[in-house]
Design a protein around this nucleic acid. Structure first.
Lengths: 142, 142
DNA sequence: TACTCTTTAGTGACAGGTCAATGAATAGTG
DNA sequence: CACTATTCATTGACCTGTCACTAAAGAGTA
């Protein structure tokens, strides 16, 4: 008999399959990529922040952050300036324009997320969120 | 007050953050990318299969499938031949070499997955798997 | 002060995913 | 039978992530 694959292994594959599907759909629905949306969200919640701490908050490689921010800056959504007290770091913040835009994006985002979780009770969402946290901890330094 | 982001929105971000972290770690641990592992797994379970049905099973764009399979073929893991009864389709199958290799990969994979889910009961794994399924259904044609 | 070590951002090369367009083979239909 | 429509695999262009490397600034120390 061909030995079957465990539930645990399945989960990992479901996981990957799901995110592969989510990313392009998210972008089509909202008009912005999930990563950029997350960057803007972070900035919306804390005005003026180190690029490096932003990077840690978002869990994306620094190289990608640099590129995203440069394009967001070119699009007028984001402003960047060096920290005069420490010329290595760059302060990032939302522009007025960016602040206006994110509100729009957010509406679309909520619609998308609601659809994805439309049959989840709020307890289930909590459970899911906890599980994701635990998985993250389990592999954080593997 | 800056209006806070809902749990639902957080989940989506956790999701993306987690998969971003998982993929490279998986590859480091197992010596093969998650996608290729999944392709080989599928082939392991069903010998000789249409490339297109393989693609659907794996939830990756056809373009990526073509490229993966070509490289796996070049590496001697996989064999491909045209279906003589329908010259459009390509049959894919594991070679003996591939069949031997996947057993090794699988050991590494199990180790990785076990670590990721080490504090999950089997009920929790089931619950998680169901949730992932439901989310997939919820967005499948959005 | 001079020397090394660390932190920060940026850059280049690569991998893996998407979409859009193509060509070849087959199916379906008047 | 001829013509159109669909399916399948492939290719090219693009986006976004990773890693490895670099340059510049600052921190720590002999």
């Amino acid at each position: 008999m061909t030995c079957s694959f465990s539930k645990q292994e399945q989960v990992l594959q479901q996981f990957k399959g799901l995110t592969n599907q989510v990313s392009p759909k998210f972008e089509r629905c909202t008009g912005i990529s999930a990563s950029r949306y997350e960057l803007l969200s972070q900035l919306y919640q804390t005005d003026e922040i180190n690029q490096s701490t932003l990077q840690k908050a978002v869990n994306i490689d620094g190289a990608a952050i640099t590129r995203h921010l440069k394009q967001l800056e070119a699009g007028g959504m984001v402003a960047r300036r060096r920290n005069p007290a420490d010329n290595r770091v760059i302060f990032v913040s939302l522009t007025e324009e960016g602040r206006k835009q994110i509100v729009e994006y957010r509406k679309e985002n909520m619609g998308f997320v609601k659809q994805m979780l439309h049959d989840f009770t709020s307890e289930e969402v909590d459970v899911l969120s906890d599980m994701l946290d635990r998985m993250q901890h389990n592999i954080v330094d593997y």
